[in-house]
Design a binder for these strands. Structure first.
Lengths: 218, 218
DNA sequence: GGATGTGAATGCATTCACAGCA
DNA sequence: TGCTGTGAATGCATTCACATCC
């Protein structure tokens, strides 16, 4: 199947399916139906089946989906079936929290270098890693074959650091600065704006809603 | 206009419009057309007009939108035209980073209390605030009239803390734990799963995409 | 019986295109 | 002329409903 036929929201749901399946597996569930998986997440059974069918035939009629199998398949589809080397720019509060965050490692994302533009911070160690100057980005990216960067710098610096990252050959940026980054078409940006999330929560609190979670579109 | 006629994606875009308008204002732009606003964010002009029209008539034919005005209106719609008292549960790495994050304050979210379940941490100070026991949540919520909570505890603890928050009268939770929380219909949960964002980035890197940003749906 | 996978039908979001106003 | 606001048209995502298989 061609990739551009897959609805964006479906790709987000894939991650939720994976998360839920891992929870089912911890509960020693070996097999699961689209109905059960959907109910746990607030989706219809048809939605679950359709989403999965975009990527292949993973189910067994009369049985459902084998939990272990489907986890493996989803990891493969999402690209987390292997280890990724990731670099971090910005050794402030947020950067240090990201560095320590266990959830990344659990998914196979390994932080292998930290950079900061602040000369005072350069050279200091955080955990195992020594903070390096942003001047070294290009060298390190090449040496360690890094394709993904996390950007946790102040909004004023974000675009220029993004340019450096792109120049160094980075192909994906997880951006925490509240700004729309300008990058070439072959570089993917995924943005997380924390204050924006709280603002959205504030909006939804003034309605009679039941909604969960932040997710997709384009 | 009835609220449930507003597309979810449109609500997310509202936040992006606001962010972009504030950037335009810093550049001393006083008036802006739907075309210009849309171009800055990758949306069509019709999209911008339609989204705004869900909430009222803010524009001036032949002129466009007055930047200052529209900022005010959007803040009012989103609920960030006033100060919110917010509490935080979880004084780990992430919690401390959230506490120090300037972006929340800029939008009028004021962190007024921190809680942790770890007795070792209780009593310690972070910045101005002293970490309190989760036992005190109900008291503090009532005293300080808090409606919003940020949840930055490990995934195993998330649901039980969420129950405590709900019991104390909290109506909105910004959840950083990678789990779908179960809450009553009058409580809103907005979730941010950091590892999931990185996973989505990984998926999109294996396509020929140009996409930006993480956003809506249901 | 119990479940999947999938074309067809529905419903929702976006875009078009234009009347109307400054 | 330049731009908004909006019904109508289009396009995309979800749901229905059923043939198919264990």
């Amino acid at each position: 199947m061609r990739n551009d036929e897959i609805p964006n929201p479906a790709v987000y749901r894939l991650s939720f399916y994976l998360r839920q399946l891992e929870s089912f597996r911890r509960g020693d569930r070996h097999t699961i139906s689209s109905k059960q998986l959907g109910e746990a997440l607030g989706y219809s059974d048809a939605q679950v089946r359709k989403d999965l069918a975009y990527f292949g035939q993973f189910g067994h009629p009369g049985i459902g989906y084998r939990v272990d199998d489907l986890i493996q398949q989803l990891k493969k589809i999402l690209g987390t079936d292997k280890i990724w080397n990731v670099l971090l720019v910005g050794a402030g509060n947020l950067g240090r929290a990201l560095l320590a965050y266990k959830g990344f490692v659990r998914k196979g994302f390994r932080m292998v270098a930290i950079f900061d533009t602040d000369a005072n911070k350069v050279g200091r160690k955080i955990g195992e890693l020594q903070i390096r100057s942003d001047q070294d980005i290009a060298t390190v990216v090449t040496e360690l074959q890094i394709r993904v960067a996390m950007l946790a710098v102040p909004v004023e610096a974000a675009q220029s650091v993004a340019d450096q990252l792109v120049g160094a050959g980075i192909k994906g940026i997880l951006n925490f600065a509240p700004v729309a980054l300008n990058v070439p078409a072959d570089v993917v940006v995924q943005s997380v704006d924390l204050a924006l999330q709280l603002e959205q929560l504030s909006f939804r609190m003034s309605l009679g809603e039941t909604s969960q979670d932040g997710a997709p579109s384009l």
